[in-house]
Computed example of a mutant assay.
Amino acid sequence: MQHVLTLIAPPGALPGALPARIRDALTPLGADTGTPDWLSEAEAVDLPFTGLATEQAEAAARLALDGAAVDLVAQPAEGRRKKLLIADMDSTIVTSETLDELAAYAGLKERVAEITRRSMNGEIDFATALRERVAMLRGLDVSALEETWKGVRLMPGAEALVRTMAAGGAHCALASGGFTWFTSRVARWAGFTSHHANILEDDGRVLTGTVAEPVFDRDSKLATLKRLCAERGLPLADSIAVGDGANDLAMIGAAGLGVAYHAKPVVAASARVRVDHSDLRALLFAQGYRAAEFVA
């Protein structure tokens, strides 16, 4: 079969009858569907099809789902497994916004979080917003970094995504508009091959209120994706990118499989693939991995 439609839901929430319902929606449009292939019982299933463009199949499937809490990806069957993963960190690989949590130790969490929200929604320039937020932290004791780190948690499915792809030979890169102080630790924890982010400056005792220039921003994420692919002789089609904020849009748009993960409205509206209901293991199912193949 030329194409595959993958349906993904939280564990145990995918009805066994759903593939038949989707098949009934595709057939009148001229699609020829194959036998459903369950990647994880009651969680993820592949429905092979031909005779219909992926965009048409996805639109028809969404209508048939009628608002059900199911994520779906329609794509060519060939080349599904990617050789490079590039992922945002805050609110993607980890559950929090680390800069907002750091600002809490300066009594500024709400003010900083509001700027973060506007930046991630594309309402204000990312680099400008980052410099403004960091400047507000001038004089904060560096011990606040360790205290913030204690509260960092991996997003459900993050470690399975990274370690499974790495075990399959993929380069896994963490690309964050946050800080290397956190990305270095998250990278080790989750199993990333490399990490790329901003450098938060201090004088050994307190934060100076500055970041090293140039700021690692939206364009930097895209450039990192392209460089990592070029260094490995990979076309962009062999990459997968995932993020939730406006500064992730360029890399999401350029990757072979670009995914908006529980994303801000501007990102969800722009990305072709959205994961709104499932955890990060959805990106493995989208690549055709079976649950039995996951590296825990």
Results as ranks from 00 to 15, higher is better:
L84A: 00
D248P: 01
D66F: 01
A197V: 02
K264H: 06
D279A: 07
L102E: 13
P15Q: 11
S143H: 09
M1K: 00
T33H: 08
V45D: 12
L207R: 03
D217H: 09
G151E: 10
M165A: 12
R153Q: 13
A69L: 12
I115N: 01
I22M: 14
A113E: 14
A170D: 14
T116W: 03
Y289P: 01
D37N: 11
A64D: 01
D238S: 15
R133A: 02
G12K: 04
T128L: 09
R227A: 15
R118V: 00
R205C: 10
A69H: 14
I199D: 13
Y289T: 00
R131N: 06
D37E: 15
T208F: 08
D32K: 05
H171D: 15
M136Y: 00
G243Y: 03
P11A: 14
V266K: 12
E114D: 15
V94C: 10
R205Q: 15
W149F: 03
H262D: 03
L228Q: 12
R111M: 12
E159Q: 15
L283K: 00
L137R: 00
P11H: 14
P214W: 06
S176M: 07
L249D: 03
A31P: 02
G51I: 11
A64E: 01
N121M: 04
R117F: 12
A44N: 06
Q287R: 08
T35R: 10
M89F: 09
L161G: 08
A144E: 06
L236N: 07
T27F: 05
G168S: 11
G34F: 03
M120P: 00
A68M: 14
A158M: 06
T33E: 09
I115Q: 05
E41G: 01
A250P: 06
E159V: 00
L7T: 08
E231M: 01
A286H: 07
P28Q: 03
V142C: 08
A286W: 04
G157H: 02
E231T: 11
G288W: 11
L130M: 12
A60V: 07
Y105V: 00
T27Y: 03
I252H: 09
D279P: 09
M89W: 05
A144N: 09
L222M: 11
A197W: 11
E159S: 13
R62K: 12
D217P: 09
S194M: 05
S220T: 07
K264G: 08
N198H: 04
G288L: 10
T33C: 15
A268L: 05
D248N: 02
